[in-house]
Amino acid sequence: MAAGTLYTYAENWRAYKAQIAAQYSGVHLKVASTPPAFTFGQTNRLPNFLNSFPLGKVPAFQGDDGFCLFESNAIAHYLSTDALRGSTPQASAHILQWVNFADSEIIPPASAWVFPTLGIMQFNKQATEQAKEEVKRMLLVLNQHLNTRTFLVGERVTLADITVVCSLLWIYKQVLEPAFREPYPNVNRWFGTCINQPQFKAVLGEVKLCEKMAQFDA
Amino acid sequence: MAAGTLYTYAENWRAYKAQIAAQYSGVHLKVASTPPAFTFGQTNRLPNFLNSFPLGKVPAFQGDDGFCLFESNAIAHYLSTDALRGSTPQASAHILQWVNFADSEIIPPASAWVFPTLGIMQFNKQATEQAKEEVKRMLLVLNQHLNTRTFLVGERVTLADITVVCSLLWIYKQVLEPAFREPYPNVNRWFGTCINQPQFKAVLGEVKLCEKMAQFDA
């Protein structure tokens, strides 16, 4: 695949998926996240941006050859190696399974729990408690799966690991305090293994794990 | 890929994606959706089901070789041909883009609008009005994309078409009455083309388009 530009705002966990994939594939990826290259809320509302990316959403990728792509999973997939995508049909299928798991089982409750602690959403006690239960259920499934596995699919990092790690970032940083995450040692081990891979570190930097569960920030 | 069994409840649009893909690939797919093969709410809570499919959700696929897979997009992908998945890296990326578009831009507002009309959820006027606006926005994007295209990606049916069609089924059958869908002629043309493909027809049967927008079913 060709080199290109990834339009995004800074510290966008969705963009991290594509950026980490590019670290593995060696694709030269320019990240346009600050003025003058990209101003979120302005650049992505301009006609020429919307011509290429009709939803105006980021991350959005434009190859140096003009190829345009939106939806973060599609971009990460495009910038990946064959190994990241899965070297057999069954591996590819399992990778897609976990990528979809991240979107459907992790992101909704993780966001519902974390956003009020970041002060970007109203706090609702019932919604937060329900989100916590969903997160516990999800972590239990992951923990059982990772009982005898180093990575989610196969013996090496794949897009499954990249996607699920990026989807768990906010809760590991904001709310999964040590006592809360203690029942999921396999997930903690796997998460630590991944974020310490050089390709993850190059994008995420040092990930500081939650020490005390953040509460609603009014 | 091997033949296998798809566990689901009947008339599950998520399962249709996999079933249509199997029509194209010729994979022999047993659909277990009724007793005694499968009783939704019972079979999927049994320990041996949860061993294979830890979320207990359907559709769930088990190959005759024992290979287990959940998440409908992963199953549809696994049961597809290379042509359905995209014959070039760029085509594959665009297909993934539209598959994710379906999950993020179609399903949330479609569910919010349609569920009350099916008696699945309580009616909320504000949520319904917001959902209608989001559906209009989404249909506009699709309509513009399909202005000069017969299919979403390339010159033939791909997983993109299968996924987006199945995701639009509820709204085309329940709420997109003729006046509401009139501003989106390209989408209507494309939708009609797809549902009349033999492989779609074999799974969906005759799709009766909405004649009058369904209202809240108490």
Binding site: Y9, A10, E11, N12, F40, G41, K57, S104, I107, P108, P109, S111, A112, F115, L118, G119, I120, M121, A127, Q130, A131, E134 | Y9, A10, N12, T34, T39, F40, G41, S104, I107, P108, S111, A112, F115, L118, G119, I120, M121
Partner: peptide, 30 residues
């Protein structure tokens, strides 16, 4: 980054919809 996160489209209600759908189809399937 946090401010822009507020603009993200997240289906917060998804678990609620999944649950409603599950119950509906469980009832429908007896």
């Amino acid at each position: 980054g946090v401010d822009f996160l507020a603009h993200e489209r997240i289906w917060f209600d998804k678990p609620r919809y999944d649950e409603a759908e599950r119950r509906f189809y469980e009832r429908k399937n007896g």
